[in-house]
């Protein structure tokens, strides 16, 4: 909730109208208007962070990648060919994530933060209403899903995150990940099958649909 409030107050501070015209903002940003560009940052930073975090599974790395990606976007704005800014931004975030993963593969390091259980961090919009029991169950199921996603290879995780969590089409994912549509379908299918297999190990947390026939 705090993040939402911060975003709203920052939007107000920057003079961003609640319903601003994206195409006009894009034009101003392309002309080098940093304030206009920052309106786009505020609009898409949660999406960018969400994609980066779910690909990298590392809070600090995801934040660094997102910051770096926005800088890259700002500096390369003149090369933006038009079309979907959201897809272009996501592509840059995805590429930066891959760069980070490749660098980590070359120089693996132990992150001390990984050794500490961080119970306080909950990167969600918390819903204060509803049944506490149902909320606990939902939180458990969400945690299970995040663990299932974390168990996937990075390329499958990115594909399924973009498709099922963020609602991108196959064509958009193909463009973002720079792969053929057939590969997108195959990655999404393998990822879904793996997530299902992971979930089936915890039948007590799953809806009735998962019960054997």
């Amino acid at each position: 909730m705090q993040g939402l409030e911060t975003g709203q107050s920052e939007r107000a501070r920057l003079g961003v109208a609640p319903s601003f015209d994206e195409s006009q903002t894009l034009e101003r940003a392309a002309a080098g208007d940093l304030a206009a560009f920052n309106q786009l940052v505020l609009l898409y930073q949660n999406l960018a962070y969400s994609v980066a975090y779910r690909t990298l599974l590392d809070e600090a790395a995801a934040a660094d990648v997102v910051q770096e990606s926005f800088l890259k976007v700002y500096r390369a704005f003149s090369t933006f060919q038009g079309g979907s800014f959201k897809s272009w931004l996501t592509r840059i975030v995805a590429n930066s994530c891959y760069d980070w993963l490749r660098a980590r593969k070359r120089h693996p390091t132990a992150n001390l933060d990984d050794l500490i259980e961080n119970d306080e961090y909950a990167p969600y919009f918390e819903d204060g209403s509803g049944d506490p029991q149902a909320q606990v169950e939902q939180a458990e199921l969400r945690d299970l899903l995040e663990r299932a996603l974390a168990a996937l290879p990075a390329d499958q995780r990115l594909a399924i995150t973009l498709c099922d969590v963020h609602g991108y089409s196959y064509e958009e994912i193909a463009e973002i990940a720079d792969i053929p549509i057939g590969t997108v379908k195959s990655r999404i299918n393998r990822a879904r099958s793996r997530v299902r297999a992971f979930l089936l190990r915890f039948p007590e947390l799953l809806p009735a649909t998962f019960r054997p026939y």
């Binding site: 940052v41 997102v66 996603l149």
Partner: peptide, 25 residues
């Protein structure tokens, strides 16, 4: 098909994460 559909539904119910800080340049 049912379990796969339910898996997709569950994934679609995952919320957008909140950025831990502002990335305004």
């Amino acid at each position: 098909l049912g379990t796969l559909t339910e898996t997709v539904q569950l994934l679609r119910s995952l919320p957008l994460l909140t950025a831990p800080r502002s990335f305004v340049l």
